[in-house]
Amino acid sequence: MQKKIRQSVREIEISGIRKFNNHVAGIPDIIRLTLGEPDFPTPEHVKQAGIDAINNDFTNYTPNAGTPSLLEAASDYFYDKYNLSYSTKEIIVTVGATEAISVALQTILEADDEVLLPDPIYPGYEPLIHLMDAKAVKIDTTETAFKLTAEDLRAAITPKTKALILPYPSNPTGVTLTIDELREIADVVRETGIFVVADEIYSELTFFGTHVSIAPMIREQTIVINGLSKSHAMIGWRIGFLMAPEAITSQMLKVHQYSVTCASSISQKAAEEALHNGKDDAVQMRTEYNTRAGFVQERLIKMGFSIVEPDGAFYFFAKLPDHISQNSFDWATELAEEAKVAVVPGSAFSEKGDRYFRLSFAASFSQLAEAMQRMATFMEKYA
């Protein structure tokens, strides 16, 4: 019966991040710096809103796009934060940013369309593109400090190009784009008429300055994805947001409706509280992540790794020293087995990432300190 399953489904695989995390999970006393989830708890006032929703029996279906009060809160929040002007008819509450990505791509892609991806990139996009019988076209950013340039974007666009996925701050690199860099990219997008799917889930974890969205520059061509998993440590609550002009959201809503009906009613009440009264909830986390980044960066450099300083999120995408001949998977496996530190092989993000590894510093300072000591001892054998 397996042969009767759709071929494109059989061809995709479980994320390399999850594969490796599962591969090393059974090693005793291992410090896992693999998964991209905050190590902070959901703020108390947000948790209480969820508890109140349960106690008040707010447990039925909501409107497909989300409760009117949450859509109002989201409209106000993203305008105040990033000057994004979207009415309640231009916002959809999704089951996390992951569903938002899926709905956006299902809505705009047809067979044989091409989607441009800055490379290396989070591995959650390409399988969705493949499921739509479209083609992912990767643009190498390893020679431009992991930044997509307007010049490289223009060179990659063909008559089949339908969209550009633009995630920033980036997973896995932590790099973001300046307003001038975004304007140059926006000019190319405007000229060529393609969509931009701007994945801005790490927007509140921007270390230097305030996050800038590309959407106001090319509003009619942009689909913005955001959510509360990273900004409010609400990973398991599964609340994301899709924002686009109404002509687009009215079509995306149909895909969302037939996929999940609506996001959890309880989570929506918690999200409303987060947006109304938790606008600064990310400040403490962002400050702590930035402090950890400085600590980890100094030690990785001393060990001989090449680093591009992250602008946000909570990752390093570090390059192995040239004298290490192993590929990233074998090196990371050896690190896990011998030093009991788990990082994600760069090959999980692309072929271009094979000489790199991703390290998440969303872990306690004591864990990071111990992990750095273990890694330093491990690296002595390569000296």
Rank of each mutant, 00 (worst) to 15 (best):
M1V: 13
K3G: 11
I5R: 10
R6N: 10
Q7G: 08
E11V: 02
N22M: 11
V24R: 03
I27A: 04
I30S: 09
R32W: 02
G36K: 12
D39T: 12
D57S: 08
F58C: 08
T59H: 01
Y61R: 11
P63F: 06
N64C: 12
A74W: 00
A74C: 06
Y82L: 13
S85F: 11
E90V: 03
A100P: 03
A100K: 00
Y122I: 14
Y125D: 06
H130M: 08
L131C: 07
L131H: 05
M132C: 15
A134S: 15
D140K: 07
E143F: 12
T144M: 09
K147D: 09
K147C: 13
A150Y: 01
D152C: 02
L153E: 00
P159R: 10
P159A: 08
A163Y: 03
L164Y: 07
Y168M: 09
P169E: 11
P169G: 09
L182V: 03
R183I: 03
G193Q: 01
V212Q: 11
R219H: 12
L228F: 03
S229P: 02
S231L: 01
A233G: 03
A233S: 15
W237F: 07
M252Y: 00
V255H: 04
S265F: 11
S267K: 06
S267C: 05
Q268E: 07
E272L: 14
D280A: 13
Q297V: 07
L300Y: 06
P310L: 08
G312M: 05
A318Y: 13
D322E: 15
H323G: 03
S328Y: 04
A332I: 06
A336G: 13
A339N: 11
K340C: 10
V343M: 09
P345Q: 08
S347W: 07
A363L: 07
S364E: 15
Q367L: 14
A369F: 05
A369T: 13
A369W: 04
A371F: 12
M372I: 06
M379T: 05
E380S: 14
